[in-house]
């Protein structure tokens, strides 16, 4: 597979995952703020922080302003609309590599968002709009899985999605846990913590899955363990790391590359920290440090993928 093609597939997938994540955060925010209007200002700040959007809370003083900033605003290069446009642009550059069905789905999603105005979303049902975007992204993933060869290209798509997901989830956990009150409890604080945990779980589509494992009793320790270390839930970081590891193993075979190369060692190391990780130890040593480290390792893997498959020096390969 051409290096440039692998690169485009990787980024197509990352941007689509980012768009879906953004849509979900907005949707969850708009939904939950209805019952807790007093928390709106704080929640808006949390959403912006977890998406790395620098914004003045005086300017973003309403949910409309928040939604507009994250959905369309041109000054923000990571809006949902921009992410989908970039995903499509990457797909367009590899039109002949992806299936026609994939292209048509992504193109339709792009056209749907491009033909929608913020006022219109607000006047109708914002939930329906963001739901349609998430569904469009899920549909694309389903179409990808069922119409594209599960060869190299598909593995690069997996890599993009799960690296993006691991990093975004780590960031989200970090931002949300800093805001959780410590164990000292008055009724209002308990209530607030419960609300924040619920939002966190829903932001990872994790509430139902969590409840099946731990019941609906929301404990910070359980929520953290679930979103970090659960091996079966597709939005946990551990799951993403397993998928990254699987994709790289498959690529090592397909490209007949040396398994001692840096990218494989980095992925193996990250996998090991999750494989043998204990929630008590992690909490003791500080969740913040741990999550920052996960993000750093994901970034290293990202760079190593580029070095291994995309922008390697020619001399290296001619000698081989």
């Amino acid at each position: 597979m051409l290096s440039r093609v692998a690169d485009s597939l990787y980024w197509m997938s990352r941007y689509l995952e980012r768009a879906e994540h953004t849509a979900r955060l907005i949707d969850v925010h708009l939904n939950h703020i209805l019952e807790q209007p007093s928390a709106a200002g704080l929640r808006r700040h949390q959403v912006l922080a977890s998406l790395y959007v620098p914004a003045d809370s005086d300017v973003i003083d309403s949910d409309y302003a928040l939604a507009e900033l994250l959905t369309f605003q041109r000054s923000n290069s990571n809006t949902m609309a921009a992410c989908i446009a970039t995903a499509r642009e990457n797909a367009r550059q590899v039109r002949e590599q992806i299936s026609t069905e994939m292209w048509e789905q992504l193109n339709q999603l792009f056209l749907f968002i491009n033909n929608t105005k913020m006022d219109q979303i607000w006047a109708d049902q914002p939930h329906e709009f963001y739901h349609a975007v998430k569904q469009g992204s899920h549909l694309f993933q389903g179409i990808t899985d069922s119409t594209m060869n599960h060869g190299q290209g598909w593995h690069f798509i997996q890599l993009g999605r799960f690296i993006e997901r691991a990093m975004a989830t780590a960031r989200l956990l970090n931002v949300e846990f800093q805001a959780l009150g410590q164990e000292e409890q008055d009724a209002a604080a308990t209530n607030r913590n419960h609300f924040n945990l619920l939002v966190l779980l829903k932001s990872c589509t994790a509430f139902e899955a969590y409840s099946k494992v731990y019941t609906a009793s929301l404990q910070p320790r359980h929520v953290t363990e679930f979103l970090l270390l659960d091996r079966e839930f597709p939005h946990s970081i551990c799951f993403a790391v397993i998928m990254i590891q699987n994709a790289l193993n498959a690529l090592a075979g397909a490209t007949e590359s040396n398994k001692t190369a840096r990218v494989y060692r980095l992925a193996g190391r990250l996998f090991a920290t999750f494989d043998y990780g204990q929630i008590d130890e992690i909490m003791q040593e500080g969740l913040e440090v741990y999550l920052a480290n996960v993000q750093k390792q994901c970034m290293q893997i990202h760079n190593a993928i580029d070095k291994q498959f995309i922008s390697y020096p020619i001399e290296e390969k001619l000698a081989a």
């Binding site: 051409l2 690529l251 490209t255």
Partner: peptide, 14 residues
């Protein structure tokens, strides 16, 4: 191109 041979850059090398 190298030694008058054309290669493409792939994920598995040239």
């Amino acid at each position: 191109t190298h030694d008058n041979v054309v290669y493409m850059r792939t994920t598995a090398g040239l």
